[in-house]
Design a protein around this nucleic acid. Structure first.
Ligand code: SF4
Ligand code: SF4
Lengths: 137, 137
DNA sequence: GTAAAATACTACAAACAAGTAGCATTTAAT
DNA sequence: ATTAAATGCTACTTGTTTGTAGTATTTTAC
């Protein structure tokens, strides 16, 4: 259970872009709208392109645009690509590999909550987010 | 949503100690049972003492023992004392102070899950953990 | 009273995450 | 062609968290 700051930045970027799904956004434009250090933002945009969420268009008038339908992009996929799945799925006691044959006392306590987290992240696509609310972002 | 490794270490320590609530545990003993670097474990034990969960008994035959009834120690209190409450409660987009007057689209998506997390951590005491399961730890 | 077994304190070191900088490359407008 | 506006790559710097070391202090056993 560990969302890095970078994952949160990725959320900011993609949720913002999802507001107008078909639009092309330049790094500068994004920087003006969401509070992420400019160079770091750019690097992250490149990473998100490589992960296939968005694609980059180079050159003057270039920028970033979604590479696939935003209803197919879930929050879990985003976290997974930035932090890795372990960050969410890992043992609540921080063991690399579970030290126990049977589950330890903490396991059951956390299991349901962990499921809820994964469930929410899995079921929520970028499209869902803006369907829920139409407020400005 | 960010449990540091140190918080997880704290869980390991206290959940282990809660198995025999009234016993006195030396740092060495704990080190043999849970996989936390020895010197780091000791420092953390001192911190947990200062936070009032356990108390230290110095000198030969010394060690650590719960300072209060384990039914009054919740997981949230432990996280709070190690990482601070913000680590759990913080904005899913990582904004220090919410940038919006009204809630942004992400807020509602996460609100329920966040509540579930806080709820679980608040309602689960060290006693509950071992009441749920009697397995060895 | 001396030694041994424990915790306490504080500074340092290593590892990791976050942020910055410089320069290269691509493309459109002129 | 030239210039400007954009992304791409890679190395460096800074900050935070995690882990280590040395030394001091406390208390019991003998
Ligand atoms: S059983 Fe315990 S140690 Fe193993 S993965 Fe679950 S919480 Fe972690
Ligand atoms: S409304 Fe949005 S930005 Fe504000 S705290 Fe909630 S998730 Fe964060």
């Amino acid at each position: 259970m560990n969302l890095s700051k970078t994952s949160k930045y990725a959320f900011r970027i993609l949720v913002h872009m999802a507001k107008d799904e078909k639009a092309l956004y330049s790094a500068q434009q994004l920087h003006q709208n969401i509070d992420v250090p400019e160079r770091y933002l750019r690097r992250l945009l490149t990473d998100l392109s490589k992960s296939g969420f968005i694609k980059s268009i180079q050159g003057r008038q270039g920028g970033f645009i979604f590479a696939r339908d935003i209803s197919t992009i879930t929050l879990l996929q985003i976290v997974e690509s930035v932090d890795g799945l372990d960050s969410i799925n890992e043992c609540i006691l921080g063991y690399d590999s579970c030290a126990f044959d049977y589950s330890c006392p903490m396991h059951d306590v956390w299991a349901e909550t962990k499921m809820k987290i994964i469930d929410t992240l899995t079921k929520t696509s970028l499209k869902d987010i803006h369907n829920n609310r139409l407020e400005d972002f």
